[in-house]
């Protein structure tokens, strides 16, 4: 028999859906919310419901938005010939911070990860194909991570879109800006050597 009331048990169980939260932290969080921060818990419950109801995927770029189209997709200031494919919304923020890209985006909300069972359905590849074949897009820039999973994802998208007459490009990898050979890791340096380009 459990010493916890049924509702508390259900709360503990529900909290375990958070990433990195196991039984122990779920229990701690539940105690904390009920004992020390009931007001905070109420705000959390309401904003969570609110977000679930109000936040959706943008019809075009798949990023989170409150409207059918996100601000970036609704803007007429962007270059519709370029489409940059990213793994996560955080990647999109980084990309915008560069202030050097004026094209459109598509956010996969994940990556192909065969060992975790993450396949094409999980990263909205069908939606990407529809987006890229809108007639405006000429070049698709693959900006997935340089991990094995990110590379696998980029390869799969290339195979999928190239037959449709689009230009597929991959962001470059190599030494960081201001990077000194002495301090860069060997893996990066080895790959930079393999992917060297004609000197301008």
């Amino acid at each position: 028999m459990s010493p916890h009331p049924d509702r508390l048990l259900r709360l503990i169980h529900a909290l375990r859906c958070l990433p990195g939260v196991g039984p122990r932290s779920a229990q701690r969080t539940a105690y904390h919310l009920l004992q020390h921060d009931r007001a905070g818990a109420l705000v959390l419950a309401q904003t969570l419901t609110d977000a679930l109801e109000g936040v959706q995927h943008c019809q075009q770029c798949n990023n989170f938005t409150e409207n059918p189209l996100c601000e970036l997709c609704a803007s007429d200031q962007r270059d519709g010939r370029l489409l940059c494919v990213l793994e996560t919304p955080a990647d999109l923020l980084m990309m915008e911070q560069t202030r050097s890209y004026q094209g459109r985006y598509f956010v996969l909300m994940g990556r192909l990860s065969p060992l975790d069972g993450m396949g094409p359905q999980d990263i909205h590849l069908d939606k990407l194909v529809r987006r890229a074949c809108d007639g405006m897009t000429q070049e698709v820039i693959l900006a997935t991570n340089f991990t094995a999973e990110g590379e696998a994802t980029a390869h799969a998208i290339t195979e999928l879109l190239r037959p449709r007459g689009l230009i597929l490009t991959r962001i470059a990898r190599g030494l960081p800006v201001g990077g000194e050979l002495e301090y860069v890791d060997s893996g990066t340096l080895a790959q930079a050597l393999l992917e060297r380009r004609p000197s301008a």
Binding site: L112, P114, L115, D116, G117, G119, A156, E159, L160
Partner: peptide
């Protein structure tokens, strides 16, 4: 999983 996913990629 890997085999299934390779097959799912058209």
């Amino acid at each position: 999983h890997t085999r299934r996913i390779i097959q799912e990629l058209p």
